[in-house]
Design a protein around this nucleic acid. Structure first.
Lengths: 144, 144
DNA sequence: GTCGTCGTAACACTAATTGTTACGACGCTC
DNA sequence: GAGCGTCGTAACAATTAGTGTTACGACGAC
């Protein structure tokens, strides 16, 4: 499907900020998170910017600036993150309108549309069952 | 996510072949299906080739050649089609290995991996609930 | 032997994702 | 108010997947 890593990196960043704050720090910088995720700070800033728009994190500017959680990890689910960073649908329709003179060409899009909506609703329910607190717990439970 | 239309086009092709055979024809050509889907015959042949590898359709060559169903539409589900045309996972991990010296960087991949596996399993169950017979029925039920 | 269709390679085009550099904006500290 | 570190964002390159297109050999019915 040409899957991307946006949800993974966003969850990584949130877990990192959450853990860092529990260790007594005020804010985390995109530089620190980027080092942990082994990517570029701008990539992190872009993703966190989308999470800020969704009300999941806050940012401060100036010296000693950085990112902090806007809510507790328990109150954030993977669905919140998914909706913040993945706007589009899971499955695409035809790129060009199918032949409307053909019975199948005419009926296929409404048919698939409603099937896809049901499937995406199920996906959302699954994502909503996992909190970022769950994610952090699983992260810390990994054997070393 | 940069969703693609492979599942949609494959379902379109199968519904088209199924309906065509019910109208008494032996085989359907990629040309005919491409006209209905408003795309190029090679695109259809490529997709149907993957469905053939999965045992969903058969092809004949020579004059009067074309494609036919290898099984009844009732016995095919969207999961069969999905697995035939979408090999990869839904969500990707980091493109580069995260910092293994960091607790989060070390634990994030196994954590997300197991979460994603559960979600994809649910997706598969949903896809398996829809047969191509269901799809064709919905297609024919579309208002005109 | 002819002809229509598949099977497949090759290539162009587009779009999304990711990485990178650059630089102004901001606000704390001195 | 000067200096400094970090965000915010634009711009661009590199890579990749998906799709469309042309071309042509392989095949098999007639």
């Amino acid at each position: 499907m040409s899957a991307n890593s946006r949800l993974t990196i966003a969850a990584h960043a949130l877990a990192w900020i959450g853990l860092y704050q529990r260790q007594g720090h005020e804010v985390a910088t995109s530089e620190q998170i980027a080092t942990s995720a082994n990517t570029n700070p701008v990539v992190i800033r872009r993703l966190l910017g989308e999470l800020r728009r969704a009300g999941l994190v806050e940012s401060r500017r100036g010296v000693g600036a950085g990112w902090s959680l806007a809510r507790e990890l328990e109150s954030m689910t993977l669905l919140d993150v998914y909706e913040a960073v993945e706007p589009g649908p899971l499955f695409a329709m035809h790129r060009t309108t199918p032949d409307q003179g053909c019975v199948v060409g005419h009926g296929i899009q409404p048919a698939m549309q409603s099937i896809y909506e049901g499937i995406e609703e199920t996906l959302r329910r699954e994502l909503a069952r996992v909190t970022l607190e769950n994610v952090l717990r699983d992260v810390l439970a990994a054997p070393r």
